[in-house]
Structure formats: C-alpha cells, structure tokens
Amino acid sequence: MPISNYCLIDPQGGAIKVELTINNGIRSGALFILWKKDSNDKWTEKESFKLITGNDGIEKHILLEKPAEIENDLLTWNIKACAQINDANHGEFSITIYQDGSKLWSKTSRRKVNYCNTGHSIFGNQVFFKHLVSPQSLNLKLWKEVEI
C-alpha cells in the first residue's frame, strides 16, 4: 500500500469528515464503505454512506465512527460519474478528509468520463486510517532516544 493511501488522524480530535468534489459540471454518485479487520483477519463492514455531488459538484459526510475507534480501518469507495455538458467530459475528482476543520488527507485525480446520455464511468480507491503519534507520546520519546 503506497504511503499516499494512509491518512493520519488524531484519536482525541473531533469527528472525521469525508468530502467528494468534482468540477466541470460532471455529475457523480459514490458509495463509501468503512471496513475493519476482524479477529479472523477478514474485512467486515462498519459503516457505509453515499455521496451525490449534484448541481454543486460537492457533497460531504461525517463519519459516525469516533476517531479513536478507526485505527487501521480502511475506507474504500467507488464513484459513478458522467458528463452533462458538451465537451466537458474531463474533470478533477477529489476526496478530502477533514478533522476539526483541518485537511488531513486528499487525493485528486483527473478523469475522462462518459457523457450522461449514453452511460457512466466507474472508478475508485481506498485509504487506511492511522492514529497520529502525539509529540508527548511515550513511544515517540523512546524512538527519539534510540535515534540518539
């Protein structure tokens, strides 16, 4: 898993907000699922939600799961999209994760999509949640001592 697919969150911070944006008048609907590995090393669904970007090209959702409880959880998504305006079938799709108003993680991809009058396009991706190690953390102090 590339490092760009990890999102560091503060376990003591506020709720996690997931935002989907798309420009150029492209319409999209997305299904997000938050997964957790069980004791048998199998992924089980914890939470799912849909985002429809509509006329504004933007939609967001606040995760029900508390930040302290999503360490090592995986958020996956698939996006169905199509272009409504002539010659505007290229757009930038962004998934952004916020906590307490700060942007923690973002992934932007430029995609070419079908025109809505014939079909749609599908693509997706995923991100792992990891707890941010606090500067006051005992573990971090130990690592610093080791480095010295």
């Binding site: 319409r27 999209s28 609907g29 997305a30 299904l31 997000f32 699922i33 997964w35 992924w43 849909k50 429809i52 995986l74 996956t76 998504w77 698939n78 996006i79 169905k80 999209a81 199509c82 995609r111 070419k112 999509v113 079908n114 079909g119 749609h120 396009s121 599908i122 693509f123 997706g124 991706n125 995923q126």
Partner: peptide, 21 residues
C-alpha cells in the same frame, strides 16, 4: 441513476483504472 447500483468497493481491490459502462 448514479446513486443506484454502485458496485461495492471491496477492500484492497480498488478500481483504479476508469471503466466505461
């Protein structure tokens, strides 16, 4: 229509390349 029948995004198997349907 875009909100209906979205394929479930399975863990560790993302659709990275765009599929046209």
């Amino acid at each position: 229509e875009l909100g209906n029948n979205i394929p479930r995004p399975n863990p560790n198997n993302p659709i990275v390349e765009t599929q046209y349907v």
